[in-house]
Write a protein that binds this DNA or RNA. Structure first.
Length: 106
DNA sequence: GCCGTGACTTACG
DNA sequence: GCGTAAGCCACGG
């Protein structure tokens, strides 16, 4: 059964993030199959071969903060966009308590 | 085929 | 509680 490429698995997980929710790199990596892919996830999203299809803006650090290197038009722009999605923000951070897609703890 | 880099995470001091 | 260090995998040159 098709072993999808590592990136593909990561993209698949990212695309599964429901609107109004966000996920952390480590979480995605874990859902993708290996939690050590945290860095690969960052790399995969950086590659972002399918902009508009992969909601990379829904991917944040485990602090609920958007990574500094996002800057694909403005880091703050990222936050604003997520707010429009319905994500609850606390200053410049995502309210992981409510909007982390996760099931990671709790 | 090896080395370096990277949008991270976790652990230890 | 904060800062520093190490670990991990994949891609590009």
């Amino acid at each position: 059964m098709k072993e999808k490429g590592t990136f593909e698995m990561i993209y698949d997980v990212v695309m599964e993030i429901p609107k109004g929710y966000v996920a952390s790199y480590g979480q995605i990596a874990e859902l993708a199959g290996n939690r050590r892919w945290a860095r690969v996830v960052g790399y995969a999203l950086h590659a972002n071969p399918k902009p508009g299809v992969i909601p990379c803006h829904r991917v944040v650090t485990k602090d609920g903060k958007v990574s500094r290197a996002f800057a694909f038009g403005g880091e703050n722009r990222q936050v604003e966009l997520l707010k429009e999605e319905g994500v609850v923000f606390c200053e410049d951070r995502v309210d992981m308590k409510k909007c982390q897609w996760s099931k990671r703890r709790f």
